[in-house]
Design a protein around this nucleic acid. Sequence first.
RNA 1: GGGCGAUUAGCUCAGCGGUAGAGCGCUUCGUUCACAUCGAAGAUGCCGGCGGUUCGAAUCCGUCAUCGCCCACCA
Length: 1079
Amino acid sequence: MTCAALLLSGSAAMPMEKTFDAPAEEARIADLWDAAGSFAMGANARPGAEAFSILLPPPNVTGSLHMGHAFNHTLMDVLTRWHRMRGHDVLWQPGLDHAGIATQMVVERELAKAGEPARRDLGRAAFIDKVWEWKAQSGGTILAQCRRLGDSFDLSRNRFTMDDGFADAVLRAFVEFYEKGLIFRGKRLVNWDPHFETAISDLEVENIEVPGHMWHFRYPLENGETYEYIERDADGAVTLRETRDYIAIATTRPETMLGDGAVAVHPSDERYAPIVGKLCEIPVGPNEHRRLIPIIVDEYPDPTFGSGAVKITGAHDFNDYGVAERNGIPKYRLMDTKARLRDDGAPYAEAAARAREIAAGAVFTDAEIDTLNLVPDELRGLGRYEARDRIVKQVTAGGLAVMTLADDPNTRPPSIAVEGRNKRKELGVWIGPDGETYVCESSDEALAEARLRHPTKDIRLPLFGEMEDGVFYEPGSDSMIWWLRLGYPLVESKPITQPFGDRSKVVIEPMLTDQWFLDAETLAKPALAAVREGRTRILPEQHEKVYYHWLENIEPWCISRQLWWGHQIPVWYGPEIDKDGFAIPGAVRAFCAASEKEALAKAQEHYGSTIEVVLPNRDENNPLREYLPPSEMGHDKQGRVTTTTLDRDPDVLDTWFSSGIWPLGTLGWPEDTDELKRFYPTSTLVTGFDILFFWVARMMMMQLELKGEVPFRDVYVHALVRDEKGKKMSKSLGNVLDPIDLIDEYGADAVRFTLASMAAMGRDLKLSKDRIAGYRNFGTKLWNAARFAEMNDCRPDPAFDPRSVTLTANRWIVGETGRLRETLDAALDAYRFNDAAGALYAHVWGKVCDWYVELAKPLFQDEASAPETRATMAWVLDQCLRMLHPFMPFITETLWAQGASRAGLLVHADWPGYGADLVDGAADAEMGWVIGLIEEIRSLRAQMHVPAGAKIPLIELGMSADQAEALERNRTLVARLARIERFETAAEAPKGSVTLSVGGAAFCLPLAEVIDIASERARLGKALEKLGKEAKGLDAKLSNAAFIAKAPEEVVDENRARLEALEEETAILAAALARLAQL
RNA sequence: GGGCGAUUAGCUCAGCGGUAGAGCGCUUCGUUCACAUCGAAGAUGCCGGCGGUUCGAAUCCGUCAUCGCCCACCA
């Protein structure tokens, strides 16, 4: 038995089922691929093949895959399978991201849910063990999900950002940046997340507009000093002139008043010119300890906004920080890591005294300033919103809120709008005889207080209409009546943009802390140049601008996080030793090294033989890591240092720092591995625009610095997957579609094809189940075409030459297949996945199933035509399987082996190389005409209500010799597909027949029994009208001299030809109408 | 406040200088031996408004309107 015969014998399989059993086959096929090592690096590569490499954006180990992943992975898998079939040297590198803050959050939540000890109680080491447990579970889930999707990455090369090798690369990158001076540590204002108690980067802050309030307060001038406050309109005319003993400020954050260092006005603001340089008082805290702060000028305040005067809190606001820096204003930190008002340090009186010394010019170090707690004792430990509440109340009660009288004294007291989270205090403000204010919950309470204060006065609450404007004397009475007036502090309700942590969803607090920063500005320059010079392409192009804009305005990147889960910063600290061998108090020396061993060596080398450097025997779990513990030192009798500990910085790196070296790290850097040589720079990065800054831009920066070469040639930026209403899928909205659920329901192929077909560049895709069902049906269609082929004994023959076929229908479909390959490759080359999917769909369903299968049926009946047609059918479907495989890998791999014995799996089959050269123009034209004829007949039959099953004659009235030959060759096809009983020839259309015109050939259908003359007349009239309209337009165009002169020749010719065809058709139909008129 | 994008059939969207398209939905008909997860036939569009460029505009340029998104320090 020959080998071929053996293979054939295996194909005498059971008859195929009517549908594809996705759940069973997907599992079976996935196993086949695994067993064959189909996705291994370089699998199916031809010798000397070009490399294609693509990195999986590592999913976070926080749970499971969502629709966005499914989309992203589908696109990558299409590219990967396509390149692999083309024989390229392919690497799709998978991996997982430890996702520091997100994972720590998830694990903490899980611990709470399971009733286990909280993170702090567990301690650092034990907690990290828990995270690793979680990672094992979650990572496994994710990879299993990828397998369901059909991801063809090389799982044997899977990397995790916290694995030893990768972690080592991360630390080495840090050391390299550090040594180049690109990483520095500094006390700066950073975005602080009070929930996670860590710094976060600018990118992790979401600015959201929320309803808020702005309060207006008076800061009294020192010693009751006064000045003329003058406001002018645009023409300089005085609109307000009054004597003031205060400066008014506006704030949305009253709680930060405690840390004010100055009040700033714009240098050009003449209203405040008289008091610039003077001192004013912060109107909170115990009266005897109130702080005075200077009124300064700075460009920052906008004279047209609020009062034009801004309170400057350098430690709690980014703008104020800048003003404070420029003007040497102290920055007083008010809050702790949970954004509660500080409860540490010396009592308020003492701190305030120090602050007064500072204001008076005493010099203090930053560290000393940081120890000052300027929170009044009674406010210490309060949450920031509670503190805000108290302060507003205090200032208002002190009569220093800018007050507005209620228009109607009998209205209900307006709430004072002190706010915490989720609560408002219903407090009213009443104004007494001296203009003093009472902040109370009821008018009776206010009245009681006022009477207590003015025991000799008759104070009353006005009843409706009782109090006249400005009159406080009751007519007809001998005594003065003092009214207690209702007022309210000037509080504007306005939307304010507040920063929220993107993970914690709590309001971010700007905090002055020590952090590590990466000099992004320096790194941005090569990253900008690489894209500008086209070394890396960003597609679609619109994203390039966004990329440029971000990199051009980049700030230092805060890379340290006060978390436990992550790469611990590779910096160790020891004391600073003076030349005599004594420790300099408070001074610290940092040693940056990629390992503890190297750090020890570096430190030992630095300190020399007189000082022994040891690692501390400290509890690593010490949860209070706000400050580094001081080194433990041993001294000799003179006090010189003899031993010292070396403490590692407890902070970890931002997750994005490690994912930032994903390209180099996964390929083995810093070693110069084979993979690096083969696959770097990677070919394509496929990613969502939401991580363009987080990830893409940073990879560009970091790779360019570390390797001096771009990390990718192309960056394909795709849009977001939304629900069918266009909403972002989110757990809270409950509109999340789980890709695995969809795969269970429709099969992975349908889900993948849907995603690919919706991947038009630069637009969000709205996913609906109907669409997926549609593509599931498409798979069934393909399945049944294959089933048809099998039932008709169509076996793929490796020796089949598509160019050798002779029958028109076969030549035609071969040509169409050639066209498809060109269209498909062009589309994939340009990342036009939707075009690629569309072309496949149109070809398989619209050409192969709708026409070729139907054309083949009569050909199978004919002994002369059957062999060639069977071979062609097998070849055509074979090509469909190959070309569909990147999109629908499971069903195509199943069909590949169905009814045919193959030497290998489809995943490694050759991608076709032919093109439109397979197109035979004559066959193409002929089939076009035949199909047109069939469609025209079918249309008329339907319009004339010919029963679907009835066979009718077709009368040929006149056609060209070519058309006659074509019809001759295709009579059986036409007869079958148009349900024609017999063909007749006549010189003229018989009575009661309907006329049709196809490409200038005239036919008619004798339908005397069914025809309705009136409706046939209407039909012809309508058709002629349409033709006439089009002809008129063409005529106008062609008689336009400018068109003839300026339009390209082929366009002119095309229009001429079309007009001619139109005229022919018009003549035929007009003649038919004329005949009808004679009846 | 800056930037980007969208506005095309009932719905979701392609097309982006030369005859308005697809899928879904809808209507009518159909148990013909691949497929009812199907087939055949059909209806539906001032391609957001207004200007301009061009022989020719859904497509290019202005502008307005509406809706999204991103970035941004107005206290």
